[in-house]
């Protein structure tokens, strides 16, 4: 393992410290890997997200005006325990309540549920939504269901904008669920990532191989295939996304997301094709985001996210955001 770190045990702490030092607008809670806005804003629903670390800039990089009020950072790829989540809820809670944006992983849901139960015992109004945008995973009543991946960033953006305007907890939850119902993502990788504490990559790929349907935790994907030109790979991912919900004639936000180890050059090549593909399908592009928004440490790969918009989501998407990782 070759990484620019000091000690495996210090990775998460030093990462959070470094992020907070990068802007006076963020602060870290003492004794917890929780990032909050330096100036707490009252009179609004507080939005929290979190999960394992290793997805930077998610989620702490999205703390700030128009998006999150707090982010809980677990160990790399490991859900934080209920205690730091509870501390985050307590730190940002207002009388309008707290909404947690949780990605659909067994561990995240269990830990957030436990923390929310504890918060309710302390008379804090708290609720949560579960993001499950990954079409690579078959959705079924009998499985854990789809993973939450890059589409989560758009939930932060749009629900965050409505929360900033002073909407109620019920209204913010409703719009978050609307984004979740309209956002789909699929990803792939050509090279794995190494969890610092594990010291070895999560899987191995030969030079001519790729994993399709990858998540954001270095776990294997749904299938292994021979590498092919990236337009064909992007087509494979897009075909699955547009087969899942009807985008035709609709306006969408496109998010071409890098997994952490993918050059922007390659992401732009992918975006070039995505635009051609959507034009041919009669899907109108409202806006495009290209970059590393939801990463998997240094994994080489990408995901494509399409959010189907309506007028309300458009307005909220356009609203002001001022966070380290996303400004509008």
């Amino acid at each position: 393992m070759k990484k620019l770190i000091n000690a495996v045990e210090a990775v998460e702490e030093q990462m959070v410290q470094g992020l907070v030092k990068s802007t006076p607008k963020l602060a870290k809670l003492d004794d917890h890997l929780v990032v909050v806005r330096a100036d707490k804003k009252e009179g609004k629903v507080a939005l929290i997200s979190g999960g394992g670390s290793g997805h930077e800039p998610a989620h702490a990089g999205y703390v700030g005006e128009g998006m999150l009020d707090g982010a809980v950072c677990g160990a790399v790829f490991t859900s934080p325990a209920p205690d730091p989540i509870l501390e985050a809820i307590k730190a940002v809670a207002t009388d309008k309540g707290v909404l947690c944006v949780v990605k659909n992983y067994t561990g995240d849901i269990m830990n957030f549920e436990m923390a929310i139960d504890m918060a309710k015992d302390e008379d804090i109004k708290a609720d949560y939504v579960v993001v499950n945008d990954d079409v690579a995973v078959k959705d079924s009543l009998y499985t854990t269901g789809r993973r939450g991946v890059a589409g989560t960033v758009l939930v932060h953006k749009i629900a965050g904008a409505l929360a900033e305007q002073g909407a109620s907890l019920e209204e913010v939850k409703e719009v978050a669920e609307k984004v979740i119902a309209n956002v789909r993502t699929m990803g792939m990788a050509i090279a794995p990532c190494t969890v610092p504490a594990a010291g070895k990559p999560g899987f191995e790929l030969a030079d001519n191989e790729m994993e399709i349907g990858i998540g954001i935790h270095g776990e294997p994907g749904t299938s292994r295939e021979a590498l092919k030109p990236v337009d064909e790979i992007a087509k494979e991912l897009l075909d699955k996304i547009v087969a899942d919900i009807d985008y035709v004639g609709k306006e969408v936000v496109v998010l071409v997301n890098g997994m952490g180890g993918t050059p922007l050059m390659e992401l732009y090549i992918i975006n070039n094709y995505v635009h051609d593909y959507l034009a041919e399908k009669g899907i109108k592009i409202y806006d495009t985001m290209v970059g590393n928004y939801m990463t998997s440490i240094e994994m080489s790969g990408f995901s494509i996210t399409l959010l189907r918009l309506d007028d309300e989501m458009k307005k909220l998407y356009d609203a002001k955001a001022d966070t380290p990782a996303l400004k509008r």
């Binding site: 677990g74 490991t78 830990n111 436990m114």
Partner: peptide, 8 residues
């Protein structure tokens, strides 16, 4: 201290 799903 465990985190993840094994912790709960």
């Amino acid at each position: 201290t465990v985190g993840g799903s094994a912790g709960p």
